[in-house]
Simulated scan of single mutants.
Amino acid sequence: MSHTVLVTGVSRHIGARVASVLAADPDIDRVIGVDTVPPPSLSGDGGVPLGRTEFVRVDLRSPDIAQVIAAADIDTVVHMSLVSAPSRGGGRALMKEHNVIGTMQLLGACQRSATIRRVVVRSTTAVYGSSPRDPAVFTEDAEPGEPPGHGYAKDAVEVEGYVRGFARRRRDVAVSTLRFANFMGPGVDSPLTRYFTQPVLPTVFGFDPRLQFVHEDDAVEVLRRVALEDHPGTFNVAGDGVLLLSQCARRAGLATLPLPSSAFRFLGDLARTLGLVAFSPEQLRLMRHGRVVDTGRLAAELGWRPKISTAVAFEDFIHARDLAGGLPAAMMELFRQAVGQVTSRPGDQAMSG
């Protein structure tokens, strides 16, 4: 029996790694990789070699994805195409179209396909939100204290709703939803990893959130396993243990600058304008309240759990990036003075709670 896998989002690092590892499996006949732009390895910009992956340029928002699935007799779909931040050339509206409308088109094509037998969707633990009313640890069935109302997290909630609807309509298809903690590792480029490469870490005054990471190697391995075996259901994926934000800063050798939340938002907007790092409202909440999930269901279902802990994943990231360890004292003082002008605005202190 032939085994043909479609992987979306192959122009990004984790998607390319998943396509590459599946293409190296001799039990898989074909791997079709789709995205709106060619992967870096195909455009001469380095990146992850895709091996025998066949790249097809497709916008998931168009009906063309149904033609690709039908023409290649796809039996397994690994949907990696959700984006966590707007691109520089686009905006929030385009990001939402890509995430939500693109997923709807993909699932519609899968529903009409007679060959689809397995669908794997990359989601995020951000669907739980971050609030002071959250449980200490989220299981897959826990309700968020405050449901996400912004950006990527809200998109992921909507995407998961469409995935559940698809699973009800196609009970013959094994549908797996993987809620990943923040990816971490040498090749990961995300708003959070860009935050940790700044010379000084602005933090929210009075808060020291608990954070969880999943190493990119473990993320690729769990996606490989679920693409090759039927494991229907929803699963949290995170490395063992947690790190406080203050611990992350110390391990990276970076100075922190506690700010009222309004000033933190201002710096996030400024950094986004400069193309450095973008902090959305949901990320601001994460930097205040943190988020921790339980991964017991994944271990029980797969007989496997991530090998790399949250702490080791972060260590691997900071060693690979060779973080400089902060600003010289004189520059740090200038930075504090600039931030002081922001925090002294009327009403800032009242908003800092």
Score class of each variant (00 low, 15 high):
residue 233 G to R: 12
residue 245 L to F: 08
residue 260 P to Y: 05
residue 228 L to S: 10
residue 148 P to L: 11
residue 202 P to M: 02
residue 151 G to V: 00
residue 172 D to H: 05
residue 255 A to Q: 01
residue 220 V to Y: 11
residue 172 D to S: 07
residue 276 L to Q: 11
residue 260 P to N: 08
residue 260 P to K: 03
residue 240 D to A: 07
residue 267 L to Q: 01
residue 254 L to N: 01
residue 233 G to I: 05
residue 161 G to Y: 07
residue 253 G to S: 11
residue 272 R to N: 02
residue 255 A to F: 00
residue 182 N to W: 13
residue 237 V to Q: 09
residue 252 A to H: 04
residue 257 L to I: 02
residue 261 S to R: 15
residue 154 K to T: 00
residue 250 R to A: 11
residue 273 T to P: 01
residue 196 F to G: 03
residue 256 T to V: 14
residue 237 V to A: 08
residue 227 A to S: 15
residue 181 A to H: 12
residue 149 G to Q: 15
residue 210 R to Y: 03
residue 161 G to D: 14
residue 178 L to P: 14
residue 156 A to V: 07
residue 150 H to S: 15
residue 224 R to F: 10
residue 200 V to T: 13
residue 274 L to F: 13
residue 240 D to I: 00
residue 195 Y to P: 01
residue 143 E to D: 12
residue 165 G to W: 01
residue 225 R to D: 03
residue 260 P to A: 03
residue 218 D to P: 05
residue 197 T to W: 02
residue 143 E to F: 13
residue 261 S to Q: 12
residue 205 F to G: 10
residue 208 D to N: 15
residue 192 L to Y: 00
residue 245 L to D: 06
residue 251 R to L: 12
residue 196 F to Y: 14
residue 204 V to C: 11
residue 246 S to E: 06
residue 192 L to G: 00
residue 255 A to N: 02
residue 192 L to T: 04
residue 153 A to R: 01
residue 239 G to A: 05
residue 219 A to T: 13
residue 226 V to T: 15
residue 270 L to W: 14
residue 263 A to M: 07
residue 140 E to G: 07
residue 249 A to H: 14
residue 257 L to Q: 09
residue 182 N to Y: 09
residue 143 E to N: 10
residue 166 F to Y: 14
residue 192 L to F: 00
residue 140 E to K: 03
residue 265 R to W: 09
